[in-house]
Each structure stands twice: as structure tokens, then as C-alpha cells.
């Protein structure tokens, strides 16, 4: 098997200001399915095509934003090795083990804070509770889909200060590849955005250089087609969801996309398209004079809300 080490983004934990409003948004409008709740008041959800126990965790707090993001690794041995390598790299802080079962259906997690201030965790086990269609002679999609009905949680885009440190940690310690980058500054020598992948996707996580640590730009969910992106736009209006921008296309990753906000101001994306990434694909570089089409390929105009509003 060619894909080893970190396999995929496994979960994102979001802080919300009102859990009832958040559940209406994430279940009825976005179309995730609730899996369970725990005694801390956390609600665990997943998309219809995901095999593992959960992929989204919502918790009511007095601030919005991302609490942490979790990554599935291929084995317990890999988990132990990554923990050792992360410690040895000196790039991460607040390293700790979260015991198995702290997330329902999930093994022990190794948690650490990356140079941009975001909390990440790795785990090797999550119960395989199955997807909406099953695995024996499955239909292409399940009955009872509702809302935008993305098939999976796909990636996050995060803002923070030490972009170089975070890229070093993801590429040199965790084995990610740099699929695309945005450069600027004198001679175009400063990397201002990094789109990194651990898989065949154009990105599994992306980071933007920003003055503050630990900011959340969006979490993204995958749709199958441009048609589904347009239907998502209809649902955004029908449910009076706060639209950010779209439907449109990114130059970066080629994604067909729409952005909107959950009731606590956390940005969500649903998107389709992109391309297949192989580890030997050359890195795509976007230069400062092409930042417009890099971000929004059709309008080629910068949008301050999209670029600067974060939680």
C-alpha cells in the first residue's frame, strides 16, 4: 500500500455559541448525521459516506473557533513513532496523550500544538461503524439524505503566525507534501500560504500566514458535483444562512466552491472538483501578482471578508 503514515483528516472539533442553533445548521442544512452525545455536552456527527465513528465534534462554549483537528494514522506503531518524532523535532508544544475512550469509539490520541498555535492530534483507532450504503453490493447513495449532504469532512484552512514552522512540522515530521503555495514579498521569497496533502487530494490542510495564532478560517466538506454546489447555494438562501462567497471556483486546487457561516460565525465550505495528487507531482506556485485568480478564478478580485474574517 502506497499511502502510509498519516492517512486523512479524521475529525474537527468546533466551539459553538449555541448548540441548538449549531445542530440545526450542521444536521438540517449541511446534512451531517448525529452519531451520539456525551456527558460533557459534546455532539458527535459524521457525513454519509464516512466509515469511522465520527468526524465532527461540536461543543457549546463562550467563544467560536476550532478547538482541535484530529488525524488518522495507519497503525499504533506509527502513532508511537510520530509521538517520538514530534517531540524530537522541538517544533510542537504542549505534547500529551489523551486516553482511549475520551472521544467515544476512539483510541488514544497524541495531542500537540503546532507553531501556528493550532491544536492537532493523531490517533490510530476509531470504531468502523460504517457508511450510509454499507459495503456489500452498495447503492451509490443512501436513502434519507437531507441538506447539502456532503460525503465527507475533507480539510481545514487555518490562519497563524509561524507558517514556516508549521510547514516544516507537517512536511518534514508528518510526511505531508506541499501541493500548492502562494508566495510574495521581496523576490517572491516569502511563503504566505501552504496547501498540504497526506493523500491523493489537492489538500488535507492549508495554512495562511497571519498576525495572530490559532485562527480558524474554515472546515470543508466534499460534494460530488458543481450541480450539488449550486443546490447548496439554494439551501443557503432557503435556510437564511449567512453567505460568505460563491458559488465560484478557486484557482488554487481548482475547487468548485461556496462558503458560508455557521450560526456562531465559524466558516464552512462545501466544494467539488479538484484533482488527483501523487507524491511526485511538482508543487504549484502562485505568485503575488496572480493572487486574485489564485483565490477566486472567475472574479479575480480580492474579497476582504473572505480573506480576513476568522474565528
Amino acid at each position: 500500500m502506497a499511502m502510509t503514515g498519516v492517512l486523512r483528516p479524521g475529525h474537527v472539533a468546533l466551539r459553538v455559541l449555541d448548540i441548538k442553533a449549531a445542530l440545526h445548521h450542521y444536521k438540517d442544512v449541511l446534512g451531517l448525521n448525529e452519531v451520539c452525545r456525551d456527558d460533557q455536552g459534546r455532539v458527535f456527527l459524521k457525513a454519509w459516506d464516512e466509515a469511522d465513528h465520527h468526524s465532527v465534534v461540536l461543543k457549546e462554549c463562550d467563544t467560536a473557533g476550532m478547538e482541535y483537528m484530529g488525524w488518522r494514522v495507519d497503525s499504533d506503531a506509527t502513532l508511537k513513532n510520530f509521538a517520538k518524532d514530534i517531540k524530537a523535532s522541538g517544533l510542537a508544544t504542549d505534547l500529551k496523550w489523551i486516553p482511549a475512550g475520551e472521544h467515544p469509539g476512539t483510541g488514544e490520541r497524541f495531542r500537540f500544538t503546532i507553531p501556528t498555535g493550532h491544536v492537532m492530534e493523531l490517533y490510530a483507532h476509531k470504531d468502523v461503524t460504517g457508511c450510509g450504503t454499507g459495503y456489500t453490493n452498495p447503492d451509490p447513495w443512501p436513502e434519507g439524505m437531507h441538506g447539502m449532504a456532503p460525503s465527507r469532512f475533507d480539510h481545514c484552512l487555518l490562519y497563524g503566525d509561524d507558517l514556516d514552522g508549521t510547514v516544516k512540522l507537517f512536511t518534514e515530521v508528518l510526511g505531508f507534501k506541499l501541493a500548492e503555495e502562494l508566495v510574495g514579498g521581496p523576490g517572491g521569497k516569502q511563503r504566505n500560504a501552504a496547501f498540504m496533502t497526506c493523500s491523493n487530494k489537492p489538500h488535507d490542510v492549508a495554512f495562511i500566514r497571519h498576525t495572530e495564532k490559532n485562527k480558524f478560517h474554515h472546515c470543508s466538506f466534499f460534494l460530488n458535483s458543481w450541480e450539488e454546489v449550486l443546490k447548496a447555494a439554494d439551501l443557503i438562501s432557503k435556510h437564511k444562512v449567512a453567505l460568505d462567497i460563491g458559488p465560484t471556483r478557486h484557482g488554487i486546487t481548482r475547487g468548485e466552491t461556496i462558503y458560508f457561516f455557521d450560526p456562531s460565525g465559524n466558516r464552512n465550505e462545501v466544494f467539488a472538483g479538484g484533482y488527483i495528487y501523487y507524491p511526485d507531482k511538482p508543487t504549484i506556485t502562485w505568485t503575488e501578482d496572480h493572487v486574485g485568480p489564485a483565490i477566486f478564478y472567475h472574479t479575480r478580485e480580492l474579497n476582504e471578508r473572505f480573506l480576513t474574517v476568522v474565528t
Binding site: 455559541l17 463562550d62 467560536a64 457561516f261 455557521d262 456562531s264 465559524n266 476568522v310 474565528t311
Partner: peptide, 27 residues
């Protein structure tokens, strides 16, 4: 901005008048 009480760009100061607020991010 986000229109959900999370991002803070619509911050105002009420100089006069009666009002109530829903939950806003403490950040």
C-alpha cells in the same frame, strides 16, 4: 463579517438607548 457573533468585525459601542444582546464570543 460572520453575522454569528464569532468574528468581531461588527463591534459597536452603544452610546445611548435600551437593548439586549444574544451570546457573543468572549474572544
Amino acid at each position: 463579517g460572520c453575522r454569528g457573533g464569532g468574528c468581531g468585525v461588527c463591534k459597536v459601542r452603544v452610546l445611548g438607548g435600551a437593548y439586549r444582546t444574544d451570546r457573543m464570543s468572549r474572544a
